[in-house]
């Protein structure tokens, strides 16, 4: 099936769902003024369903926008790929969404035009009310092949591996370079599907854990804190890095947390696979690694 055929399926189904009142809106993607850039949009009338697009650039995560719709009556319809479904699971787990108020239209993904989609292992949604098509296993839209996963800098933790390969001083310089350029716009936080606080600690009126000053050192504190806050819930979608207006390679921070969680627990760790699992830092094992005590 071509992307064009899939797009038509999406538009038809969205129009039908809206027309019979099954959902009050459909969260999907529309084309922007810029070629190769789509944006998340809310479609609320059947006739607007033609706005919806599906192509190799329908990259942004739809799930986080749902949080804004959660108090309105009726069901919200959402177009969800594997990554979106993990995000939905996370938001359900954090009590930011209610499953019965969602209608999830599952869209198995063929991989998008973004290097951060390359290691994706979850093309078909984990949770959905209907699937519009089946995953095409033959399609290779950028997913990790077995050979790819082993290639240096191309595996699941490609960004973290890149940093880890450096010596400790070079690592410091790597981040110095990143955080000297950071403008603290918090786009990374806003896009993150697991950043669900009512008020982020950095926005509080009374400066608490850290200064609001924008300099490499304080930006660095923000960067590490963010990794600590979201790392063990991170669904590895890459939105934080994708939305960074300065193009900073910050995905390594959260990748490092997941990598470490796996090493410490001696077991695979992946957030968002369901809506029940406890976070890595929200549980413990009596036999956890205890190297420095």
């Amino acid at each position: 099936m071509t992307n064009g055929q899939k797009q038509q399926l999406i538009r038809d189904r969205a129009a039908a769902l809206l027309a019979d009142g099954a959902v009050s809106c459909i969260v999907g993607w529309r084309q922007t003024r810029f070629a190769g850039k789509t944006a998340v949009c809310f479609v609320r009338a059947p006739e607007d369903a033609t706005l919806l697009v599906w192509n190799e650039y329908t990259i942004p995560l739809t799930a986080k926008y749902l949080a804004d719709e959660r108090w309105t009556g009726g069901k919200a319809g959402i177009l969800a790929r594997g990554c979106d479904s993990k995000a939905i699971n996370r938001l359900l787990r954090d009590n930011q969404l209610e499953r019965e108020k969602l209608y999830i239209v599952g869209l198995p993904c063929e991989g998008k035009a973004d290097e951060r989609c390359r290691p994706c292992r979850q093309k078909t949604p984990l949770v959905y009310d209907e699937l519009l098509w089946e995953e095409d296993s033959a399609a290779d839209g950028g997913g990790t092949s077995a050979a790819d996963a082993d290639a240096p800098g191309r595996g699941r933790f490609f960004r973290a591996d890149e940093v880890s390969a450096l010596g400790i001083d070079a690592r410091y310089d790597y981040w110095e370079d990143v955080y000297a350029r950071c403008i603290r716009c918090y786009a990374c936080r806003n896009a993150c599907p697991v950043c669900s606080c009512r008020e982020c600690y950095v926005d509080m009126h009374r400066a608490g854990f850290q200064s609001k000053r924008q300099n490499a050192a304080d930006n660095r504190v923000f960067g590490v804190t963010r990794a600590f806050h979201v790392g063990d819930r991170c669904i590895e979608c890459g939105e934080c890095e994708r939305v960074c207006p300065m193009g900073l390679p910050i995905l390594g921070q959260t990748q490092k947390v997941i990598q470490t969680a796996e090493a410490l627990a001696g077991a695979p760790y992946e957030a968002g696979l369901n809506a029940e699992d406890e976070n890595f830092l929200g549980k413990f094992d009596l036999d956890d690694k205890d190297a420095f005590m």
Binding site: R220, A261, F280
Partner: peptide, 22 residues
Amino acid sequence: TGNYFTRRRFMLMRELLEFNGV
């Protein structure tokens, strides 16, 4: 059980600090 959470948090934090060049 407080210190079991401590253990996870700081085993993780130590790695993260080292990752950040500390």
